[in-house]
Design a protein around this nucleic acid. Structure first.
Lengths: 274, 274
DNA sequence: TCAAAAGTGTTGGGAGTACACCCATGA
DNA sequence: TCATGGGTGTACTCCCAACACTTTTGA
């Protein structure tokens, strides 16, 4: 910032290229957990991660899907306020978990002008969603990590399937950071393939040392349901006794029970706020 | 982003308030570890974290200190390229550790116009710095966490002392996130007090589960020196045997030794790249 | 009756904590 | 000589993985 040594010099440069057609967007990676229908009356429904995507019908990305976002109103809002406004518009929800993810840019990100995008991750309990969202739809996420650092992601909303793969290239050894290179992607606009993977990894990393999952849970839940959410985020099966011990002091047993599952009923728990 | 349903509508809004006087900067939190002189010939020099600040002599922050930064050249560079350019300008260093920290904004951040700033943390081994930097100076950092979630930070470059304090207000329980409220600050421009604390916390969090410290180390170092760097970042004393076991497989013993310390000489180690 | 899930107890290994101890140096 | 830091061994604690086991339900 010390480029401008005086007010005069600053004003002289005021209309130079730093102001030229720059705009910002806040993009929201809205994640939740969905229930898959089960045929066997005994089985509990399995869960999947899901993401809200919006279908674009504007030039130049007509027909492509993207993470919901909106342009920053430069005069009137902060980036986070912008993110909340987009959330409200897309889901009619307020006061949900929102966390800044990363600021993505790239000179050719948008062919129309220079756009820098700050992305946010939002987590919701899908049951809270009442209104049917227009031009948007929830996609179930399947994520497969292959051995050569290639990640295959499949998004499925029941009607359309989006597939893309990303190669993780080691960028820096000391902190184990990777650059994401999109290998294949035909249906996602912008660099949203990268945004999605970043967000999923962020949540996965936070699961083990925070209580972040409770933002995706309803008020009352069984320990089995909670465990399933952990499992779907971590993408691996957990052992029941270990899991129960670990989350024991994070939850509070209620006297409510869930019956009707063709098996022993389970107590409902809620998040202990201490 | 689905605000613009068609190209026409998009173009109609092209010159609306989203383009009005928006600019971005990349700000660099350049951190290192300094050696304090020791009077006793036996004692090893103690270390402190240190930060590079630039003195502003431009309106409206004349006389204040700030984290070095520069405006994004909208047409020609990415934010990260901008950060690297600033690094090069301030320190003449290239290829050092650089990590995006957070995108700070706030409508009134800069009184002249709307500026959104993406901050980066850079780590260096101070010995690599050859050139004397103009208008900039290294400050030793003292950080005291008080019990009521107030953090006192003192920056000292030998001539001038900058003191500020920040209150950490719980923003969100599940992931233990805090908002920073600057309680007191007279000598730092913009919101750089917050930027500094964010960066210090980021590094501290990463110390335990990454090899990030090695970015601040010279090629050869003793285990005592390495331990001191861990201690100064974590702000607590570590036990020797435990520390040695933990970092044992991250370092490689060389046959070089450091003598002349008034005590048993120590082997020099280097980072094991595996 | 029995498959499925709820829920508990026990054991062992690996990681970190704490402490005790010896080694080598140079003013 | 001795304060100072370099360096190692060991015993203890705690957490978590793994496994075995019992309980309860509804078609």
């Amino acid at each position: 910032m010390s480029e401008y040594k005086s007010e005069e010099e600053f004003l002289k440069n005021y209309d130079s290229s730093i102001f030229e057609k720059l705009s910002m967007t806040a993009d929201i990676l809205l994640l939740s957990v969905s229930d898959q229908e089960q045929t066997n009356y005994r089985k509990t429904s399995t869960k999947m991660m899901s993401i809200l995507l919006a279908k674009r019908d504007d030039y130049p990305y007509k027909g492509k899907w993207c993470v919901p976002g909106g342009f920053l109103d430069v005069k009137n809002e902060t980036l986070e306020e912008c993110a909340k406004r987009v959330m409200k518009r897309e889901t009619n929800l307020e006061d949900i978990y929102l966390e800044q993810l990363y600021t993505f840019d790239g000179i050719d990100r948008d062919p129309r002008m220079r756009v820098v995008s700050t992305s946010y991750v939002a987590l919701v309990d899908k049951n809270k969603l009442t209104q049917k969202v227009e031009h948007a739809s929830w996609f179930d996420i399947t994520l497969i990590e292959e051995k050569d650092n290639v990640v295959e992601i499949t998004l499925d909303n029941g009607e359309e399937v989006i597939r893309f793969s990303i190669k993780k290239v080691l960028r820096e050894k000391t902190t184990d950071r990777y650059d994401f290179e999109v290998v294949e992607n035909d249906k996602l606009a912008f660099d949203h393939a990268k945004v999605i993977l970043s967000g999923l990894e962020r949540i996965r990393n936070k699961v083990n040392y925070t209580d972040i999952v409770f933002n995706m849970m309803p008020e009352y839940f069984t320990l089995g349901e909670l465990q399933q959410v952990y499992e779907v985020i971590l993408n691996k099966k957990l052992l029941d006794p270990a899991f129960r011990r670990i989350i024991a002091d994070k939850v509070e047993k209620t006297n409510k029970m869930r019956t009707g599952g063709g098996h022993r009923p389970s107590y409902l728990f809620k998040y202990k706020k201490n």
